[in-house]
Design a protein around this nucleic acid. Structure first.
Length: 892
RNA sequence: GGGCGGGUAGUUCAGUGGGAGAACGCUUGCUUCACACGCAAGAGGCCGUGGGUUCAAUCCCCACCUCGCCCACCA
């Protein structure tokens, strides 16, 4: 077995020993600096065999990073470091998002606390103020990134509002505008009366709410009758311009072409007919308010109705309705209902639950509002973006998100991109007051390109912040310039993000990426879950259950935090975080630390030549076993990493390290070292060091700080001037796992566990050595046990093993159990016999139940006939072994 | 109204057409010279309900119940 293919030899100089207790604060910041100094985060495009690139989902500069970010960043960092360890040229590009509306709200709130308002400052000074805020927020976010250990290439840092991104935004806008894919139109859009801006459709969050359905009577002119309409928003009746009924509705046929008098306003409005009206709903009559309802607007256009605007941008009633002027929309709703009632026109009022749209940034109810806005024509952009996913050029992980994405793309609607904000990319369109020319430009223009007049002005509105986010993979790499970075790293490898921004961001990047970059922006999209607290409640500020990642880092260390996040983040699984979880992360770190400490204490200076050390003494069973398990673990973990199943990979590594390496190999090695020859000692310590390095490398992507710290304490680490991350690669082993060693070791482990079980159930004190009698005809197993006699002794407190038959008359004096057909006996003092009988009876019961099951199966003729031969054969073998075991037990 | 995901140990989740697993928690015993942030042993599950396919179903198919999420302009 050649385990030293990577040909690393151990140094002569002695390693630094690790302090008894871990203190992450002593090494985490230090290592981050060292990694940066050593250029660990930089790219090396020239030499590497493969490339890998992630652009960070840029955090909003609205505040600091929360647990969701910690999860998102931990995943990316683990992937990035994994790829570095495979030898790829890796780029992880950092940056932040100017987050138009969200950031503007944050700064506005600060101004409010200071007793002022953005209007007092004026646009320029307000923007200045936001830039100042940006500096502090960005600094804080970047500091958190460093604390978490994010291996980002700081030289490539971008901001969605920096010069390079501005250029990209303008170029993209101009191209779309010139191609007619961006247009300006008067439409009903979603308006937030608090943020005082238009919103796109997906920026509205609908929620079921308790409300009322008001039945209002509209007198039909020239008759004594009335048409009753049902509405949830009675205040909008001030802006009504018609009442619509279904043309086939018999109830209303007599009113076709009649006029009704609009209550409270006195306006005379027509009764119109339209198929859209549902006869079943309410009264079957619908009030039409073109300026305040999207569908009414469509009907209004169809029927040439005027649109009366009864509410302004603050959600306050306009001066056209003196009785209500200046009232807030909800106060107006109440007054309208009261007034109608007093005039006997409110027929009834029902309790009614319906969904109400809210602004996703400030939470207040949005208002459908008629205004002039900019839109992107989406169909032409969406089709290739959908196709790319259908073709598998971009792949969603887990796959179920593909459908969600495609469903949205296939039902796409035009995107309202103008925002009435001050913080953001100002729409790069100039209008000439003289000739009326309207043109988009990448650079600021001073004169009209058509008539050269200097009497031109730029649009006041800014772009939806997601417009610039959508360009992120392109703009960060230098687009529209054909930079080396763009050529080398576009398309990027994977995008790691949450499902909540698939439409906002992933979809837009796909569209822009294909449109402007000529290819998909990323090959894979890894969609992770959200962070919840221990009770399963989504972690959010409004629930007051947020945990600050920095607090956890302070208390447990960044590695513990990362471990907790990563081990809980199964493919697409929501992550439940709690103190319990963080403690388990800390415990793992502690275990790793102590295992390393033990190895360094035992063998501060391992032999310089691993190959030589291994050749001078024979590997024993535990050596062959652990090396085989190590190889298996490496293969499994790396395969899982390649599928981005990080949690599963981490579990495999964890189980190997803790349960195979520490629980068994280290314990056995401890004992072997006591009586080892020099050659054996060299060999064992070589393997210990070798496996420790291996374990550190495998763990490094998940818990980078502690692995680096331990690495540096190793003799081989101390000799290197640069750390693990910079120089190491995953171990390259090309030997096959030794299945026989694994089988034998599994048998021995079972044997030891059974002896321990007997000891525990008979309450034999840990310090009491016992004799063990073993009875079997299997010479191969006897051989194995003889080889492993020392393991069995040391791990189960056995002083002596005797092989052979037990004389019948002595049987009552022994506790017994059967493992793989091998009977073992432990002498029992008579006063302990009760426990033993109980234990044995329980075992007998389990075995006989199993026996009945298998017998039944084999007596079933169709099973024997139709089941695959090997399955039947296996069952038969089991039956024989089971009968044998059962007989032996029954004898006792 | 449409779609998606889940229902397996006390909890959070793996899992496979043929003997139910892990972690944490719990119980018990251990100051065993790396680690009590530890070691060892143990208890605990009609694998949501009903039907179907199959020699065989926790797993595949159908229906239902249930929890959660997303989408949709029903006043």
């Amino acid at each position: 077995m050649d385990i030293a293919k990577d040909n690393t030899d151990f140094p002569q100089d002695s390693g630094t020993s690790l302090p008894k207790h871990i203190d992450p604060t002593h090494y985490e910041a230090k290592w981050y600096q060292r990694w940066m100094d050593a250029g660990c985060f930089s790219t090396h495009p020239e030499a590497a065999p493969s490339r890998f690139c992630i652009v960070i989902p840029p955090p909003n500069i609205t505040g600091s990073l929360h647990m969701g970010h910690a999860l998102n960043l931990s995943l990316q960092d683990a992937i990035i470091r994994h790829k570095k360890l495979t030898g790829a040229d890796v780029l992880w590009l950092p940056g932040t998002d100017h987050a138009g509306i969200a950031t503007q709200n944050v700064v506005e709130k600060q101004l409010m606390d200071e007793g002022t308002h953005r209007a007092d400052l004026g646009r320029e000074r307000f923007e200045q103020r936001v830039w100042e805020w940006k500096e502090t927020a960005q600094g804080r976010i970047n500091d958190q990134l460093r604390k978490l250990g994010a291996a980002v290439d700081w030289r490539m840092e971008r901001f969605t509002f920096d010069e390079q991104c501005c250029h990209a935004v303008r170029q993209a806008f101009k191209t779309l505008y010139d191609e007619g894919l961006i247009y300006k139109d008067m439409r009903i859009i979603n308006w937030c009366p608090r943020c005082k801006t238009a919103l796109s459709d997906i920026e509205v969050e609908f929620e079921e709410e308790g409300g009322a359905l008001y039945y209002v009577s509209y007198p039909v002119e020239g008759t004594s009758e009335a048409i009753v309409v049902a509405t949830t928003r009675p205040e909008t009746m001030l802006g009504d311009s018609a009442v619509a009924v279904n043309p086939d509705d018999e109830r209303y046929k007599k009113f076709h072409d009649k006029m009704v008098t609009l209550p409270l306003v006195g306006r005379s409005i027509p009764v119109i007919t339209d198929d859209y009206v549902d006869r079943q709903f309410g009264t079957g009559a619908l009030k039409i308010t073109p300026a305040h309802d999207p569908y009414d607007f469509e009907i209004g256009k169809k029927h040439n109705l005027p649109a009366y605007c009864m509410m302004d941008e603050d959600g306050v009633i306009t001066s056209d309705y003196p009785a209500y002027t200046g009232m807030d929309r909800f106060a107006c709703r109440v007054k309208v209902a009261v007034d109608l009632k007093s005039q006997g026109l409110l027929v009834k009022q029902e309790v009614y639950r319906h969904s109400v749209g809210h602004c996703y940034r400030c939470g207040i109810a949005i208002e459908p509002y008629l205004s002039l806005q900019w839109f992107v024509r989406m169909k032409e952009l969406a089709e290739p973006a959908a196709q790319a996913v259908r073709d598998g050029r971009t792949r969603f992980l887990p796959d179920r998100w593909t459908k969600v994405y495609l469903n949205w793309m296939d039902n796409i609607r035009d995107w309202c991109i103008s925002r009435q904000l001050w913080w953001g990319h100002r729409i790069p369109v100039w209008t000439c007051a003289d000739c009326g020319d309207i043109s988009a430009s990448v650079t600021d223009i001073q004169e009209c390109p058509n008539c050269s007049s200097r009497n031109i002005s730029q649009e006041d509105d800014v772009l939806d912040t997601w417009f610039s986010s959508g360009l992120w993979p392109l703009s960060t790499l230098g687009w529209p310039n054909s930079t080396p970075a763009l050529k080398t790293y576009y398309p990027t490898s994977i995008l790691v993000t949450g499902f909540d921004i698939i439409f906002f961001w992933v979809a837009r990047m796909m569209m822009f990426g294909l449109k402007f970059g000529g290819d998909v922006p990323f090959r894979d999209v890894l969609i992770h879950g959200i962070v919840r607290d221990a009770e399963g409640t989504k972690m959010s500020k409004s629930y007051g259950n947020v945990i600050d990642p920095l607090d956890i880092i302070d208390e447990y260390g960044a590695d513990s935090l990362r471990f907790s996040c990563l081990s809980s983040a199964g493919m697409g699984q929501d992550v439940y975080l709690s103190d319990e979880k963080f403690r388990s992360g800390r415990n793992l770190c502690n275990k790793l630390w102590n295992a390393a400490r033990f190895i360094l204490m035992t063998a501060p200076e391992p032999p310089s030549d691993l190959q030589k050390a291994l050749s001078e003494a024979a590997l024993d069973l535990s050596d062959r076993w652990i090396l085989s398990r190590a190889k298996e673990t490496l293969d499994e973990a790396l395969a899982l990493m390649e599928q981005y199943d990080l949690a599963e990979a981490l579990h495999k590594i964890y189980a190997f390290f803790w349960h195979d390496f520490c629980d068994w190999y280290l314990e056995i090695a401890k004992n072997r070292l006591k009586n080892a020859t020099e050659a054996e000692h060299n060999m064992i310590t070589s393997i210990l060091h070798y496996l420790l390095r291996w374990i550190l490398t495998l763990f490094h992507p998940f818990i980078p700080f502690i692995t680096e710290e331990i690495w540096q304490a190793l003799p081989v680490g101390a000799r290197h001037s640069v750390p693990l991350l910079a120089e190491e690669r995953y171990p390259q082993f090309d030997f096959a796992p030794d299945d026989e060693a694994i089988r034998q070791m599994t048998f021995i482990q079972g044997l030891i566990r059974n002896v321990r079980d007997i000891r525990a159930s008979l309450s034999i004190p840990p310090k009491t050595k016992i004799e063990l009698l073993v009875s079997t005809d299997d010479s191969h197993k006897i051989q194995t046990m003889k080889i492993c006699e020392s393991y069995i002794s040391s791990l189960s407190g056995v002083s002596r093993i005797q092989f052979g038959r037990i004389k019948d008359k002595d049987e009552n004096r022994y506790a017994t159990c059967i493992i793989d057909g091998v009977e073992i006996f432990v002498p029992v003092p008579s006063e302990m016999k009760d426990g033993e009988t109980e234990r044995l009876e329980k075992r007998r019961k389990t075995l006989s139940e199993e026996l009945v099951r298998i017998e039944g199966k084999l007596q079933n003729e169709s099973f024997v006939q139709k089941a695959p031969r090997e399955v039947v054969q296996k069952e038969r073998e089991k039956l024989v072994a089971l009968r044998d075991d059962l007989n032996k037990i029954t004898e006792r």
